[in-house]
Design a protein around this nucleic acid. Structure first.
Length: 601
RNA sequence: GGGGCGGUAGCUCAAUUGGUUAGAGUACCGGACUGUCGAUCCGGUGGUUGCGGGUUCGAGUCCCGUCCGCCUCGCCA
């Protein structure tokens, strides 16, 4: 018995709207809910579909049976979304069963009707699935939108995921511990949301970007196994699968290595997919970051289809095409992906459109050729003459294949082709339905060079432990040192990421200095963590899984706002409450704040 | 901060190259109807075409600005 089907009888009702069955025929029942639809036949006969969270039951007002004229007149005035309470007896339907409803074999014959709340001037009908209002309207009247069965299903799925997580972790000795929302601002990472302090004039809290430091402190505190379904805040621009305020399943464990957490979290996701979808994930394969970048041009590869990247720099250098030869001479690469047999579908117009697409990711352009009757045609065909046979062999080309070249610095060529690979696969429908390709990506580099800032940035975060054997490389060749970090990917989407943490103050200091964080700076910003590491820190590590994204996958939506009860728009607004709003001068004065913003005309 | 798409009745949409009184479905209101289940049938109300300016004899349509929503690059340790 789940929360969806258990009894919810109260002083106002005896059953929910998906409970009455033929076995209840003859019994008295009282239902309460929303009028889902009204079908009137004049003075003598009115049908109402009554809806609540659980489902729909047909109520009939029938002059020939139990209903009197006064009730029929009242019933005739009922309209969609009115909230009513009806009492009567259950009977088998006269007009035959309705197979579309789980309660379709019975109906409730109304003897008593009470209108609890009349719905007037609805902006839209939540039951009208054909004419779904635009998202703006749905967000303004979220209470109506959430009444839709599809949204109810998502709310329930999100609940089931959270319960599945709690059940699983509880059984394995994890403690659910809350951490502060009003935190100290930590540098780096995303932009912080700031909260002014009234009691400490001129000072500010930050909302947590994640409970990262607190959960490490909890390990030092001997909690051993911690989890939390934690709200996190990052003041950055949103995307379809990301908003500033989001939820993570946050986990940290002591006395573990990479395999412990990978195995445990694999098992956790097997449990979630089993609980929610009844799907068996099976073993989750592992791939190194280097392999993911080389083969798929992404650190979160979608392995549901092929079209992998191939490096053709050596051949490209033998052409007379300056774009190729110049790039290779400067240390860049030429890589290729092949859309097999797609030359008919990928018209000139479409392939032309791919050029600006990859330019977004920094590529200069997008050389293209097609293979027709054994010869290269269109695009850069003429430049490929000298290497035609070698290229055909290397890429295994057949007539009808389309080849796209990514030309430039390795990272940029990989990223550009990686993104193009996904776009082409979507455009051509190459992505199989119903597949769940989970993948652990491991062996990330510790750091990567930031060209703009001319410094090393951590790939994961500054508390990520290097591989023990790579510690000496932090000084000799830091860019090659690998970390004990891991990301869980499903169908090309990152749903969890974490690492074994540094538990030695010496290694932590070394990493800080590598990242250009001075000792003094580190003491000011992370002094409490460095102190904790000096006072008996166990080896520990953890992971954070994006709850919103997990639910998106399980519900089959590509819009993060669909899986959040009260989401925010692209400008960070809540269209229902109209947050954010202005603060009064008195409020600001108390907080020792004055706005410098000047409205433009 | 950059690029793209969109905004017409409560809601979903239409409106020829700029051209008569901006239409349809649905919702809502009124009427008919005793077995419907997207009930049906008849009638009706409903518009600052997001907002401001411009071009024009004439603007929903073209131009400029602006607001809002969505997608995206940057950003997101």
């Amino acid at each position: 018995m789940t929360t969806a089907t258990c009894s919810v009888n109260t002083t106002l009702r005896t059953h929910h709207c998906n409970e009455l069955r033929p076995e209840h025929v003859g019994q008295q029942a009282t239902l309460a809910g929303w009028v889902d639809s009204y079908r009137g036949h004049g003075g003598g006969l009115v049908f109402i579909d009554l809806r609540d969270r659980a489902g729909i039951t047909q109520v009939v007002f029938d002059l020939e049976d139990a209903s009197d004229r006064a009730i029929l007149e009242a019933a005739d005035k009922l309209r969609g979304e009115d909230v009513i309470r009806v009492s009567g007896h259950v009977r088998r339907r006269d007009g035959g069963p309705n197979p579309k409803l789980e309660t379709g074999e019975i109906e409730l014959v109304a003897e008593k009707l009470e209108v609890l709340n009349k719905a007037v001037g609805l902006p839209f009908q939540p039951t009208d699935s054909d004419n779904l209002p635009k998202e703006e309207i749905r967000l303004q009247r979220r209470y109506l939108d959430l009444r839709r069965p599809e949204m109810q299903r998502i709310l329930r799925t999100r609940h089931e995921v959270a319960q599945s997580m709690r059940r699983y972790l509880d059984q394995r000795g994890f403690l659910e511990i809350e951490t502060p929302i009003l935190c100290k601002s930590t540098p780096e990472g995303a932009r912080d949301f700031l909260v002014p302090s009234r009691l400490q004039p001129g000072e500010f809290y930050a909302l947590p970007q994640s409970p990262q430091l607190f959960k490490q402190i909890l390990m030092v505190a001997g909690a051993d196994r911690y989890f939390q379904i934690a709200r996190c805040f990052r003041d950055e621009d949103p995307r379809a699968d990301r908003q500033a305020e989001f939820t993570q399943l946050d986990i940290e464990m002591s006395f573990i290595g990479v395999d412990d957490i990978v195995d445990m979290v694999s098992d956790l996701f097997r449990a979630i997919w089993r609980d929610v979808l009844g799907h068996e994930i099976g073993e989750i394969p592992t791939m190194s970051y280097a392999e993911a970048m080389t083969r798929y041009g992404s650190d979160r590869p979608d392995t549901r289809f092929g079209m992998e990247l191939t490096d053709v720099s050596e051949l490209a250098a033998k052409t007379d095409f300056k774009v190729f030869t110049g790039t290779v001479a400067e240390g860049g690469v030429v890589q290729a992906i092949v859309a097999r047999g797609a030359s008919e579908q990928l018209t000139r117009k479409i392939t032309d459109g791919y050029a600006p697409f990859v330019q977004q990711f920094g590529l200069g352009g997008l050389p293209v050729v097609k293979l027709t009757d054994g010869a290269f045609t269109t695009g850069v065909a003429k430049f490929l003459e000298p290497i035609a046979d070698d290229l055909k062999n290397k890429l295994g080309l057949k007539d009808g294949d389309v080849v796209f070249f990514g030309v430039g610095k390795e990272k940029i060529a990989q990223r550009g082709l990686g993104e193009l690979r996904l776009k082409i696969a979507k455009d051509l429908g190459l992505i199989p339905e119903g597949m769940w390709n989970f993948l652990w990506v491991i062996d990330f580099p510790m750091i990567e060079w930031n060209e703009d800032e001319q410094r090393w940035d951590s790939l994961h975060h500054p508390f990520t432990a290097p591989k023990v054997e790579d510690i000496p490389m932090l000084e000799s060749s830091p860019g090659d040192a690998l970390s004990q970090a891991y990301d869980l990917v499903v169908n090309g989407s990152e749903i969890a990421g974490g690492s074994i943490r540094i538990h030695s103050p010496e290694v932590q200091s070394k990493v800080f200095s590598l990242l250009g964080i001075s000792e003094r700076e580190a003491e000011i910003k992370f002094g409490f963590l460095l102190n904790a590491l000096r006072h008996g820190a166990p080896p520990h590590g953890g992971i954070a899984a994006g709850l919103d994204r997990v639910v998106m996958h399980l519900c089959g939506t590509e819009n993060i706002r669909d899986v959040i009860a009260f989401p925010k728009t692209q400008t960070g607004a809540d269209l229902m409450t109209e947050a954010p709003g202005e603060a009064s001068d008195a409020q600001l004065a108390e907080l020792h704040i004055r706005s410098t913003y000047v409205k433009e005309d």
